[in-house]
Every structure is written in C-alpha cells, then in structure tokens.
Write a protein that binds this DNA or RNA. Structure first.
Ligand SMILES: O=c1ccn([C@H]2C[C@H](O)[C@@H](COP(=O)(O)OP(=O)(O)OP(=O)(O)O)O2)c(=O)[nH]1
Ligand SMILES: [Mg+2]
Length: 560
DNA sequence: AACCAGCATGT
DNA sequence: ACATGC
DNA sequence: GGTT
C-alpha cells in the first residue's frame, strides 16, 4: 500500500498524491473522543519531530501498521505514503531483506541518507517516548546491500521467498494440499454464465458451483429463490465458519475493513454452500474464496485449528480491542486509540478514558446489550411500540423488520418501521411516539435521535419491557413516507449482506438502490455518482425485485 | 489498481 | 471530515 | 480478503 514506487531518481509527482498525503495527515490529527490529560502531555513530547518516515507494509500486520502511522503523526513525525527524496527513515518488518526491499521500492541501488530500520526500533521509541538509537536495528551495511541487489538483477527471475527463517506457512500447506485431490475437477468451475442474474457475487456462484452431478439448473440457479430458507440442524462447515468469523471480527476491529469484508463474503459463500467442504478444490471453487482463504479453510478442515487465528487472538491487542468494540458506539478506531493509551479493562475505561454520551450508555449496559433476545421477547417489544403508535393515530402501521421479519429465533435488537397509508400522517410521529414511549419508562436511554425531531428519520435507543427480570434491549425505529414503504421495507428487513448484494446488482444495471428509492439512469464516474438518476415507482417489495430482474424472495430467504 | 452500498446521526 | 451504526 |  504505502510502497511500490518510483526509483529514487524520480522527483515526486505533483497533484493527486500530494493532496492525498496532506489529507491523510489532517485526518489522523483529528483523534476522536478527545484525549485525556495524560495523552495531551504526551503530545508535547514530539520526539519524532522532523522525521519523514515511510513504513513498508510487507510483513507488518495491518494492526501494528496503523498504530505506527497514528503514533508517528502524534509524536511530530511525518508519515509518508510513498518514498520520496525527503524520506529519512524506512521502517521494515524484522524479516525484511534488502533485495526484497529493493524490489518493492523498485530501487536499482540504495539511496544514501536514508535509514532502513526494523520495526522494533519504532516500537521501542513509542514505548519509551524517546528517540532511541537505531544502531541496533538498522539493516546490514551498504556494500553488502549493493551486492545483493546486483545479484538479484543478474538473476533476473528472482522469486526469492522472503521467509528464510522460521516456519513458512506456505510450505507447511502445500504438501497437505496434495493429499486432497480425490476429485477430478473436470467440470468443476463455472459451467454457467450467470452474467445477467449476477445478483449476489458470492451466492450466485456458490450454488452453480456445487452441483457436480446436479443437472438441474432450474430456478436454483439464482440463489435468490432458495438460499437461506432451510434451517438446518447440522450446519456444514460449522467450525470453518466459526474460525473465519473470528478472523473477520479481528480484522474489523483492527480497522482493516476490506479484509474483514473479504472474510465475510467467503463466510456467506460457505453458508450458502450447504454441503461439507472436504477439499481445497471445493473451497477455492467458491466465488469469494481465493487461494489464501482456501489454504486457511483447508488447514481448519485438517487440523481443526487456524494458527493465524490463534496467533492473533492470543494477543493483548486483539483481546482488548475486541472487548472495547463490543461497547455500543465504540468502533475500531476508538478501541485501538484506547488501547494505545494504555487502557486494558472496562473498569479502567470508565474512570480514565474519554467516552462520549453514547459510549457511556453502551458501557453501562454492556452485558445486556451484548446478548440477543428471544424471538418472543422481540414480538412483545414490537407490540408495545405498535400499541403506543396506534394510540397516537390508529391508522399508523408499525411492524418489526430486521432479523425478526426474517423469522430468526433470536434477535439482536428490534427494528420497527412506522408509516401511514395516507402518505402524510407519518409526519411529526417521532415527537409523539418517542414521548409516549418515554413517558411510561419503556425507553430507558436514547442513543441516536434528534432534539427537535424536525428532520428525524431514525431513532436508536434502549428499551426495557415492564416485566419481572426483563433486560435492556436495543430498539431501532424508522418512520417513512408511504411512497417509500417498499424500499424502506427492503432495507430494514435486510439482511445487510442481502441489501449490499441487491445494491451491487442495481449498480451493475445502471441503477441505485437505497432505503428511499430505486433510481434508474444513474451515471457514475470514477466510482462517484454524477447523476442521481430518477426514482422508479415501487409500490411493493415485489416491484423492486422485478425492476432488479430477480425473483421475489420472502424475508426468510433473505437471511444471508 | 480499482472496487467492494448507501445512508443518518454525533462530534 | 471522520466515526459509528443501521 | 477476493474479483475484475
Ligand atoms: O450495515 C447495515 C446494517 C443493517 N442494514 C439493514 C439490514 C438489517 O436487517 C436492518 C436492521 O439492522 P440490524 O443491525 O438490526 O440487523 P438485523 O438483521 O436485524 O440483525 P440483528 O438480529 O443482529 O438485529 O438494517 C443495512 O442495510 N446495512
Ligand atoms: Mg435487528
């Protein structure tokens, strides 16, 4: 990411890249949540002042990488996205070798005046709050460097594996992989071209790929119609899914959202593939599962464990940031900030960290809000909101969507949609409804709302049934105009994965789908919408499916 | 190397 | 602008 | 992370 760039001879390019760099610096200085007195004091010790530091990401975990980045800026250094002639320090992984570095940076030779230092140096500096000597961390002397570079260039085809010492995961994998092919993957891949109906990248592929003997391609060709409807007692690949979900969570909480996204997509593919995966080939044939994930899946199948996961999960960082991220209102950025500030426990957080209002609620109700409720309890909450709404106006429609509408046996929260058939009486409902729900003490805490309710579209809060032993539960309410009901229902029913699939399909068809409308004639340029397009009439959910060109799916079938 | 959904609210 | 969440 |  922050590497592969121009030879040292090049002056930096003007324009885009510089803007980006400047942008990044600005961003990182705006730390969320404010800082404690302690860290303010730390900020004054700008021991990295004037240093232009480039981190080579290869071999360095994203988690550490991001902390480095943030801390460099915090302590007065300049974080560099790419190598320029201003670069003073290059931070590399402990296992980095000079020839590899040269290839990464496309260097013919090593520039002078640049220190190439192992990352432990930076770790030490940050730990000691001091610019330590880098002598013990610099890579070997120059003559050696130049030579090794030359050798590489001569050899031309340098595929030198960086993993010289220690174990090499790849090598441990490949032999095992060879045991697997009990299958001839003759008709394995992609027999069908589902270009037209590519409604979910992961799922569309998953099904067609599975039937080795199934001649039927009938309607199941679109996972849309059959996908998640059947609840199984035995979930195939359960352990694999569990491990990958942990990986996804770890990466999410280390702010590597796209890596997490990749895992989640693979998980979705596995869930849709209703059979036990037994071979590497099985796994890699799934859309959304590439070689690296197939390797990991294979390892889990063979050993029941994933070393990479054990490695990550055993770290203090992962444990702590995962715990912090379970607080409502605390995401990856804040969790990691608190970690780098030295916080390790929830109790410590309460006393010493800087929490916003939502996070204080989240922390206070930590245990309750982590739990899912039974479907039955969710039904009672829906009913409570519905009755309160209809006391205000009997014509109001209120229904639980989300996991409840999809028929799940447990619900993480209750998502209530409110509208009115006359197309206008939904206005002003928030004010009255929230007042009604507060009045009885049903709502215990607000998380996201609006003071004057003038343009409010959603309410996120906490409620508690008036019953013995009831727990605090998350409640989401949206109020929508009746002409947006279909799209709002689609959105609020989900699942989130399902929504994103539909929206991806919409993009592919030159449309755009949101909770408000399905627009056509959308023009995008460089990923950005130039023209919002025009809303299509969508009287029913069915009409949305039809306009998207996919068969209707009941809520239960949208549980991806 | 770009893309991976689109939006509301809080700070 | 960014973080967080739906 | 994967796909295009
Ligand atoms: O990133 C998201 C999250 C949610 N939603 C939609 C789909 C989802 O079904 C609905 C409600 O969100 P919630 O987080 O409550 O998910 P859920 O499907 O109801 O699951 P849970 O049982 O955890 O509440 O909002 C999205 O479109 N994108
Ligand atoms: Mg929900």
């Amino acid at each position: 990411m922050a590497s592969r760039n121009m030879p040292s001879t090049n002056k930096r390019k003007r324009g885009k890249n510089e803007d980006l760099d400047a942008e990044k610096c600005k961003k990182s200085k705006l730390e969320p949540g404010g800082n404690s007195a302690k860290s303010t004091a730390e900020n004054n010790n700008r021991f990295l002042n004037g240093l232009h530091i480039l981190i080579i990401s290869a071999g360095i975990q994203k988690f550490r990488f991001d902390i480095f980045k943030k801390q460099i800026i915090k302590y007065g250094g300049i974080y560099m996205e790419k190598f320029t002639d201003e670069t003073s320090h290059i931070i590399v992984d402990e296992k980095m070798e000079l020839d590899r570095l040269c290839r990464i940076l496309k260097w013919d030779s090593i520039p002078t005046g640049v220190k190439i230092i192992k990352s432990l140096w930076l770790s030490g500096c940050l730990k000691d709050n001091n610019l330590n000597s880098s002598a013990n961390f610099e890579l070997d002397n120059q003559e050696f460097r130049v030579q090794s570079v030359k050798n590489d260039l001569l050899n031309d085809n340098v595929k030198v594996e960086p993993s010289t010492s220690n174990y090499s995961p790849k090598n441990e994998h490949s032999p095992t992989k060879d045991h697997s092919p009990k299958k001839d993957h003759s008709s394995k891949k992609a027999a069908y071209s589902d270009a037209d109906s590519d409604y979910d990248e992961a799922n569309d592929r998953a099904l067609p790929a599975s039937p080795k003997g199934h001649k039927h391609i009938p309607t199941e060709k679109w996972v849309c119609s059959a996908a998640s409807s059947d609840k199984k007692k035995e979930i195939p690949n359960k352990n694999v899914i569990a491990k990958l979900e942990e990986m996804a969570k770890n990466y999410k909480n280390s702010a590597d959202k796209w890596r997490s996204f990749g895992y989640q997509k693979a998980i979705a593919a596995l869930k849709t593939y209703n059979k036990e995966i037994t071979t590497y080939e099985d796994a890699v044939a799934l859309r959304g599962v590439g070689k690296k994930l197939a390797d990991k899946i294979w390892e889990i199948i063979q050993t029941g464990e994933l070393r990479k996961l054990n490695e990550i999960s055993s770290t203090d960082e992962a444990k702590t940031t995962n715990m912090f991220s379970d607080i409502w209102g605390v995401g990856a950025t804040t969790a990691r900030l608190w970690y780098t500030q030295g916080h390790r426990t929830l109790a410590n957080l309460e006393k010493n960290a800087n929490l916003n209002r939502q996070q204080k609620v989240g922390l206070r109700l930590y245990d309750d809000l982590k739990e899912r409720m039974t479907r039955e309890e969710a039904g009672k909450i829906e009913q409570y909101v519905k009755e309160t709404a209809q006391k205000i106006n009997p014509g109001l429609i209120a229904m639980a969507c989300g996991s409840y509408r999809r028929g799940k046996q447990t619900c993480g929260d209750v998502d209530v949609l409110v509208t009115h058939p006359d197309g206008k009486s939904h206005k002003g409902v928030f004010q009255k409804l929230l007042h009604g729900l507060h009045e009885t003490g049903f709502l215990t805490d607000d998380l996201v709302t609006q003071d004057d309710h003038s343009t409010q579209q959603k309410y996120l809060g906490v409620c508690k049934l008036p019953e013995e032993g009831s727990q605090h539960r998350r409640l989401d309410i949206i109020v929508v105009p009746h002409n947006e009901l279909a799209c709002a229902l689609m959105y609020f029913t989900g699942s989130a994965h399902f929504n994103r699939s539909c929206r991806n399909l919409a993009i592919a068809k030159g449309m755009s789908l949101s909770e408000h409308s399905l627009n056509t004639g959308v023009i995008r340029s460089h990923g950005e919408k130039i023209n919002k397009g025009t809303p299509l009439p969508t009287p029913t959910e069915e009409s949305v499916f039809e306009l998207l060109g996919i068969p209707y799916r009941s809520p239960q079938e949208r549980d991806h």
